[in-house]
């Protein structure tokens, strides 16, 4: 691979992305191939498919390192690209995955970023109705068991700068760095790795009991509020006919929805009773005859099926061979 690289230098751009190689920290006990290994970022100005007011002050980065986070990307731009200021970074995935609630089809969609990095930011809870539970805030959420998120391999990020100028400056800087072949180092940091990460996780998995208790109290009171909101929604659904003119039967009606299972069971019982009282099916001669014919047909079918199966067996493993 190394010789390959020497013969053909890697490309510097691809489909509008600037390819920025990052020098990785040198670490002990790695195979020799890794000594001069570089990490490659693919960067270009953000062009979201849905219009986004922040788009023109954002850069889109593909293939971020697994330990990238808002803090260390901020440092990267501040220290190695001439002090550019990053407002926030939105990632498209995390390890462990961010919590996700079940949602209604037509409920307002929350942007890609909100799920992962939105913790702590204020959210207008009344507008967002999830299908279950509540969208938690700091009080009602259970304590997190991991400190710091990791990125899945090859993840993407949107870096939002403080203003348009910084974003444009950053894009220029990046291209310049790529062109000049300036060395950019990936420092990482700001996330606990190694055995400390797991030690911490183990400790966090078992939070103090009072902390848990208060989180639950907060959650349950918010839950009551959310239930009220959901009930409102259901009420609306109950009174509004859909495009075919039917009114959807929903939970929370006066007498409660019909219990389908019960109805089915009753139906079955009734049929059972009818069967018992009805004419026995071997009463007439023709019935026995028909039954016999039916059975014959069944047997024939079963036989055909078996034959196919054996045929299929032969096809797949060849001739029957006695084990030697």
């Amino acid at each position: 691979m190394a010789s390959n690289k020497a013969a053909k230098r890697p490309p510097k751009t691809v489909s509008g992305f600037a390819i920025l190689p990052l020098t990785l920290p040198s670490l002990p006990s790695l195979p020799s191939q890794c000594n001069d290994a570089k990490h490659y970022l693919y960067i270009k100005p953000h062009e979201p498919s849905h219009p986004d007011p922040d788009a023109d002050r954002s850069l889109f980065i593909s293939n971020v390192p697994f330990d990238a986070n808002e803090a260390n990307l901020r440092t990267l731009f501040a220290e190695q690209f001439g002090g550019l200021r990053v407002e926030r970074v939105e990632f498209d995935g995390s390890v462990p995955a961010a919590p996700s609630w079940k949602r209604y089809k037509h409920a307002p969609v929350v942007s890609m970023a909100a799920g992962s990095s939105g913790r702590g930011r204020k959210r207008k809870r009344d507008e967002e109705v999830v299908a279950e539970g509540v969208v938690e805030d700091e009080e009602s959420a259970l304590p997190r068991v991991w400190k710091g998120e990791l990125r899945p391999s090859g993840a993407c990020a949107v870096v939002v700068f403080v203003d348009k100028a910084s974003a444009r400056g950053a894009w220029k800087e990046v291209r310049a760095a790529v062109k000049e072949g300036r060395e950019i180092r990936w420092v990482g940091g700001e996330v606990v790795l190694g055995v400390q990460r797991y030690k911490q996780h183990h400790a966090l998995t078992f939070p103090a009991k009072p902390l848990l208790q208060s989180s639950i109290n907060a959650y349950l009171s918010q839950f009551t509020a959310a239930e009220t909101a959901r009930n409102r929604l259901r009420l609306k659904a109950r009174s509004v006919p859909d495009e075919d003119g039917f009114i959807t039967v929903t939970r929370g009606g006066r007498a409660g929805p019909a219990r389908l299972e019960d109805a089915e069971r009753k139906q079955k019982e009734l049929e059972e009773r009818r069967k018992k009282n009805g004419v026995k099916d071997d009463f007439y001669r023709f019935q026995t005859r028909e039954k016999r014919k039916e059975r014959e047909v069944e047997l024939r079918k079963a036989f055909e099926k078996d034959r196919e199966r054996v045929e299929e067996m032969r096809r797949r493993r060849g001739k029957v061979r006695v084990m030697e």
């Binding site: 691979m1 920290p25 191939q33 290994a37 570089k38 697994f66 990791l150 790795l193 190694g194 990460r197």
Partner: peptide, 17 residues
Amino acid sequence: NKGAICNEIKRLGGEMI
């Protein structure tokens, strides 16, 4: 990028590796 992945793994595992 096998080299970078090895580097990543070492970063993640630290002294465990």
